[in-house]
């Protein structure tokens, strides 16, 4: 097992209040790390630090064998995007821009965009407008774009939030398949049950890490049992 990403003692502040405090973890090739925690517990902030969108106030993020900009990223959806006039193909293709220094697309890029849409079973709406798609279809398109940007590591911020259960389940299985094909995944999830079902590692955040380790250990831990029990009880 070789680490491809190490995050050591990372902290992040907005103004004076800590959003992330002293988080350390390691991601190996082929891992599926799920980050869980309540709203406002610093999950998105941590992910933005991993992506280099925010500079950590302390600590260090290191990548082994690839560059930070070669991460595929699926952001938390914003309302602005949902009615954006763009074709699906335009959106997916934009994932290829990071592959070369010049701002134009090559024939290889176009092929790659098509292949990734096909891989996700989304080639049927390639010519459609992004804003005419359902929430689940939009997520698939953004996932195809992320796949164009990476061969190694995918970061997803609450990809299934807001989807109906059937759509959510479909997307989870798609991610599971991608993971089994060799892609490393870090996913922020609201759904603790699917996090422990698919992830091999769990990071439970509440500004600072409450738990970090293998999923099997999480299920045996006090906090893990409380979370799963609480969900079942609810």
């Amino acid at each position: 097992m070789s680490a491809i990403l190490t995050c050591s003692h990372v902290s992040m502040k907005y103004d004076t209040a800590h959003a992330v405090r002293n988080v350390s973890f390691e991601v190996n090739d082929g891992d599926y790390l799920c980050i869980v925690g309540e709203n406002g517990s610093g999950k998105s902030t941590l992910m933005k630090v991993l992506l280099g969108l925010l500079k950590p106030a302390g600590g260090k993020v290191a990548f082994h064998g690839f560059k930070q900009i070669q991460i595929g990223y699926l952001p938390q959806q914003t309302p602005i995007q949902q009615d954006f006039p763009a074709s699906v193909f335009e959106v997916v293709l934009s994932g290829c821009l990071s592959r070369h220094p010049f701002p134009f697309y090559t024939r290889k890029d176009r092929q790659m965009a098509k292949d990734n849409l096909t891989r996700l079973g989304a080639d049927g709406f390639m010519r459609k407008s992004y804003r005419d798609l359902s929430g689940g279809q939009q997520q698939r398109v953004l996932l195809a774009r992320a796949l164009c940007a990476t061969e190694k590591l995918l970061l997803l911020d609450e990809p299934v939030t807001g989807l109906d259960p059937v759509m959510a389940n479909g997307l989870c299985q798609l991610l599971d398949t991608l993971n089994k094909q060799g892609l490393t995944i870090i996913m922020i999830s609201h759904d603790i049950n699917s996090a422990v079902k698919y992830g091999n590692k769990i990071l439970h955040m509440q500004t600072k890490p409450l738990f970090y380790g293998a999923t099997s250990d999480y299920l045996k831990s006090e906090i893990g049992m409380r979370m799963i029990g609480g969900e079942r009880g609810a």
Binding site: K48, L51, G52, L53, I69, I71, Y73, P75, Q81, F84, A86, E90, V91, S94, G95, L97, S98, P103, F104, Y105, R145, A146, A149
Partner: peptide, 22 residues
């Protein structure tokens, strides 16, 4: 014309564009 594709990605999704090196 030169930066059309970059302008698209920055307009559509600034976070993704920045994360992937734009």
């Amino acid at each position: 014309a030169i930066f059309y594709n970059k302008i698209f990605t920055v307009t559509f999704d600034e976070g993704f564009a920045k994360a992937t090196g734009t």
